[in-house]
Design a protein around this nucleic acid. Structure first.
Lengths: 235, 235
DNA sequence: AATAAACACAAACAATCGTTTGTTTAGAAA
DNA sequence: TTTCTAAACAAACGATTGTTTGTGTTTATT
């Protein structure tokens, strides 16, 4: 019954507090100012802004948006709270940027997969694989987009929800078509969708680059388990 | 591609904002003062305290602990913020009570199932079933325990994490034994555990008593999908 | 060398936070 | 009645919140 080698405690799927990685790859599309909300301020050192965003993603993931102060964030970045306002517009804009970077990436992945050829089962697998991959490459940002989006302010809150719904509808359509094609079990589409999206969420909380399980192995195991089930076929 | 009948938008498993139900069943074990943290203050009207706790669970679920003020909560309860301090010790105590009510219930369910007879697959199914059932009966509290426990203060934060770990270890042991007995596929135990616990989490965000899918149907579909997989066996 | 822009910080702003205090109301116990 | 106490509110507490202002320092451009 060894659990230690693998996991940060997961009671009922809680955001764990990882040892602060001090540096983030952040492969989400770099801070395009999300339409109508955030205009960049970068001048001399555009990397400072990204540093703030990365550190904010980790802070918000660990403590939550509402429980994190700008002074906390400043301490992590190594800047006075006031100084950060040379690089960002507001605390809200930070959250906005993180959330929409993630949602834009997810939408882009959906569009790509939708245009692929091949059976629906392969499309679903590929979309799920990319979904998981974003978690392993941009875990903090994904975590914030998943857990802290409620703190977005109003027109953007609605926009985010709409983006989310678009992603879900696209994903659900693949499942529905897969069922119709006889590739998948005839389960309730929404139950299947939510279960899939939900099932992979622990990755964003658990995965750290140094883990014994590689990201590729994780992807494979996870997808196999979801598509084939835990139970051993009675054959 | 009808998704509407079933679901609140689930992008990557976000806490949805439900229409405020105005009344909660709250079948978690009623507010035993968690050891060393909360001593009840009830005098004349002990039900007022529970009303505050119920309303807090919904508020914290919708907006998050850090984004919810005592004045917000008071407005929902129909009381001045100050008046609530006749019934509760502090804002932290509210969160503490909610989190540990949930974790205590989960631990109790684990202990019960561990003592059952029968194959491991049945034990796992039963534990999963009770796990889901607590979400459908105490969704708001479960959601808060899952998402807001990070805001607990220190010694209780550690206690909560330990309770969570105990639950996980017990659950993992069942899976490991099931694999050893040849009842389950030989997957990585932790991957299986986290995937199962994670997969059912959308229920806490999606389920509402008035849904077209009954709680029982939901339980059945969900468990079947996780144990048998989404893919249609190529037979 | 001079100018201007980019950036950092100290100090302070109003607003809001959780909570305490003092007082009043209302019902139960004597 | 009188007495006691639970419970509600108004007002205010100090602390902290996000953010602005003013001023200085660095750095690149002319």
């Amino acid at each position: 019954m060894r659990l230690a080698a693998i996991g940060p405690p997961l009671f009922l799927l809680p955001p764990a507090m990882p040892a602060k990685p001090t540096a983030t790859p952040a492969p989400v599309a770099a801070a395009l100012p999300a339409a109508g909300a955030a205009r960049a301020i970068k001048k001399r050192q555009p990397h400072k802004r990204q540093l703030i965003l990365d550190e904010a993603a980790h802070l918000f993931k660990e403590r939550g948006f509402g429980n994190s102060s700008m002074r906390d964030l400043g301490a992590r970045v190594g800047l006075d709270a006031a100084s950060m306002y040379n690089h960002i517009r507001s605390k809200d804009e930070i959250l906005d940027t993180i959330c929409f970077q993630v949602s834009n990436t997810y939408i882009a992945q959906l569009l790509e997969v939708e245009q692929m050829a091949g059976p629906y089962l392969e499309k679903i697998t590929e979309l799920l694989r990319r979904h998981v991959r974003l978690m392993t490459t941009s875990g903090a940002a994904v975590s914030v987009a998943n857990n802290e989006w409620k703190a977005l302010t109003e027109p953007r809150l609605t926009e985010f929800k709409e983006a989310r719904k678009r992603y879900e509808k696209g994903f659900a359509a693949l499942i529905e078509q897969g069922i119709a094609a006889g590739e998948l079990q005839p389960v309730n589409v929404s139950v299947a969708l939510f279960t899939l999206l939900s099932a992979v969420r622990w990755v964003e909380l658990w995965y750290r680059p140094g883990r014994s399980l590689s990201a590729a192995e994780l992807e494979a195991d996870l997808i196999t388990m979801l598509l084939d089930g835990l139970k051993k076929p009675t054959a």
